[in-house]
Design a protein around this nucleic acid. Structure first.
Lengths: 213, 213
DNA sequence: TAGATTGTTAATCGATTAACAATC
DNA sequence: TAGATTGTTAATCGATTAACAATC
C-alpha cells in the first residue's frame, strides 16, 4: 500500500510527537502492546482519532491485538524524520540561544547541534557544550564544510529577515524561529515558529476569561 | 450588547496575539485606520476570518470606514488581559529559566516577574535582573506576601507534577509549562504548554516530507 | 448621496467521532 | 472458534469562507 499521496493535515502532524512521547514512556515501562482504546484513555483523546491519525501513514496495528509499542514508536519516529541525523545550528548566542544549546533533549531526539553563530565578536571563541561560538561572517564558509539542515533563530526580530534569507540562500531545509516576527521568505524552506509571547498571551486570555474569578 | 455568553474557540483565541502584534506594528507606523481587507493581505489570512474573529468579542469596526487601529489594539489587549498587571514567578533557574527571566518582551506585554525559585541552594541569593533567586522552601511564605498569578515551569519533567500541584494548592491562576510532560492537576487552573521538542519534531516532519528533496 | 466596509447569515469545507465489517 | 480490536466508511460537528443587507 502507498500512503504518500494523501495530504496529511497539520493537525494530525502536530499530534504525532505526543503519540511518540507516550509510546516512549510505555516502552520505558516495558509495555509491549497497547490498544487504541487504552492509549486514548491515557492521553485523553478518542480511540477513533488515534486510529484515524495513524492510518494516514499506514496500518501499524493488528485486529484483535492492538499495536506493538516498540514497532509503532519506531515507525512514528521514522515518519517524523528523527533517524535522519538532522544537523542544527543556532543563530544568536544570547540567553535563549544558550538555553537551547544546553537543552540536551534535542540530541536525545536525534538532532545534532554542530554550530553556534553570533554577531558579537566578544563571544566568538567561547564554547557551549564543546561547540565554539563563531562569528556570523563565517557562516558561508561553514556551509561549505558542513551539511546544515536546520537553523535555530534566537535573535531579535530586527535582524531575522536578512539572516533567514541568507540561510535559505545557503540551502538550509528548515528554520525554527524564536524571533517575534513572521518569516516571509523567497525560496524553498520549511518554517516552524515558536512565538513565546503569543503563548503567554493565550494563557493570559484563559486566566482572564476563567469563570471562577 | 453582551458577548460573554458565546463560547470562543481556542483557534480564535490563538489568533488574537497575532492580530495584536500586527496592530502594534501599524500603530508604530502611525497608521490610524485599517480595513479587514488590507489587514488580511498583510497577515496572509482572509478578511472574512478577521471579521468573524473580532465579532466574537464585539463590533469594533465601522461600516464604510474599517477599524481604528489604536482602539482595536487596545481592545484586543484588554481581551487578552494584558492590562491586568499579572504577576509571574519562574520555577527553575536553569538555562531556560534564566533565558525567560531575561526575556524583556514579556514585561512589555504587561507581565511582571516578581520571583524566581530553585531547589539548588547554591543558586539561592543570586540575582537575575534584580530579582533574587529563592529556595523552593520559601514558596509558601512568598505567596502569603504576594499575589502570584502565573507560574512559569522551567524544571525537568520529573519534578513538575509535585511542584505544579503545590502551586495550584497555593491558588495560582495559570501555569506556563515548559517541562516535557502533560500536566494533570486537581483543581482550578489554566494551563498552557510549550513543548519545544514537539515543535522541533514537527519541523523535522515538514522537512522530511518536503517534495523537493 | 454614493462608495466602502462592516456585521452577520448562509454555504462550504475539513476535522472529529461513531459505527461496523474485516480479520487477527 | 470466540473475543477483541483494527482499518475504514459514514455521520456529525465545528471552523472557515462567501455573500450580502445594513449602515457609516
Amino acid at each position: 500500500m502507498f500512503y504518500n499521496d494523501k495530504k496529511v493535515s497539520i493537525a494530525v502532524v502536530r499530534r504525532l510527537p505526543r503519540y511518540y512521547r507516550y509510546l516512549g514512556e510505555l516502552l520505558k515501562n516495558d509495555v509491549t502492546r497497547i490498544s487504541s482504546k487504552e492509549l486514548s484513555e491515557r492521553m485523553g483523546v478518542t480511540a477513533s482519532q488515534i486510529r484515524q491519525d495513524l492510518n494516514c501513514f499506514g496500518g501499524f496495528g493488528q485486529q484483535g491485538y492492538g499495536y506493538n509499542v516498540e514497532y509503532l514508536y519506531k515507525e512514528i519516529g521514522n515518519i517524523l524524520g528523527l533517524y535522519n541525523g538532522y544537523t542544527t545550528i543556532i543563530i544568536g548566542a544570547g540567553n535563549l540561544g544558550r538555553a537551547l544549546a544546553n537543552h540536551s533533549s534535542f540530541e536525545k531526539r536525534g538532532f545534532r547541534l554542530i554550530g553556534i553563530f553570533d554577531i558579537n565578536r566578544d563571544l566568538v571563541g567561547e564554547e557551549i557544550r564543546g561547540i565554539k561560538i563563531r562569528h556570523m561572517d563565517e557562516l558561508e564558509d561553514f556551509f561549505k564544510e558542513n551539511r546544515v539542515d536546520i537553523g535555530i533563530l534566537s535573535i531579535p526580530k530586527e535582524g531575522v529577515a536578512e539572516v533567514s534569507q541568507r540561510l535559505v540562500n545557503l540551502g538550509i531545509k528548515g528554520l525554527w524561529n524564536f524571533s517575534y516576527a513572521d518569516l516571509n521568505l523567497e525560496g524553498d524552506v520549511e518554517i516552524e515558529n515558536v512565538h513565546l509571547s503569543d503563548s503567554l498571551m493565550t494563557l493570559s486570555y484563559k486566566i482572564t476569561q476563567h469563570k471562577r474569578w
